[in-house]
């Protein structure tokens, strides 16, 4: 995607990330950007997602609690957010589209657990209902 001037809070933060097949991936919980030394404008390097990215944005006790609760649930052992390189982004509209599938991005420890421990154990989990 060609360079484009974005208002971070208005166009990126909290947007839904959609994969190349239209599947819902995650929300943009935070972004990492780089400020070049030569004085040119800063640019976005990665989209951050997951409780470790959302927690600090919630702020205060609630934010810390948010991150810890997810750790307790065993989602991750570190406090690092999941990252999506910004090169993968193909479109920024009412959602942010990335040129990968959900499986390729592989940033769903929570989804995987819910599937493994609950949903896949129920009959018919693999069939569309419509």
């Amino acid at each position: 995607m060609a360079a484009r001037v974005l208002d971070l809070t208005l166009h990126l933060l909290d947007r839904q990330v959609v994969d190349q097949d239209g599947g819902l991936v995650c929300n943009v919980d935070d972004v990492d950007f780089l400020v070049p030394d030569d004085g040119s404008p800063p640019y976005v390097v990665e989209l951050l997602t997951g409780p470790a990215a959302l927690g600090p944005r919630l702020g205060g006790l609630l934010g810390r609690w948010w991150v810890s609760a997810y750790q307790l649930l065993g989602q991750r052992h570190d406090r690092e957010p999941d990252r999506i390189p910004y090169q993968l982004v193909t479109d920024v509209g009412s959602a942010v589209t990335v040129a990968r599938t959900r499986a390729e991005l592989g940033i769903h420890p929570g989804e995987d657990r819910a599937r493994e421990y609950l949903v896949d154990r129920l009959p018919g989990a693999g069939h569309e209902s419509g």
Binding site: N27, A114, L118
Partner: peptide
């Protein structure tokens, strides 16, 4: 809940593809 957290939701996909929503 799913929309707030950006999870896959809805009845159009297989339940196993929207596991947290169904949870």
């Amino acid at each position: 809940v799913s929309q707030y957290l950006g999870w896959q939701w809805g009845k159009l996909v297989r339940p196993r593809d929207a596991a947290r929503f169904h949870a």
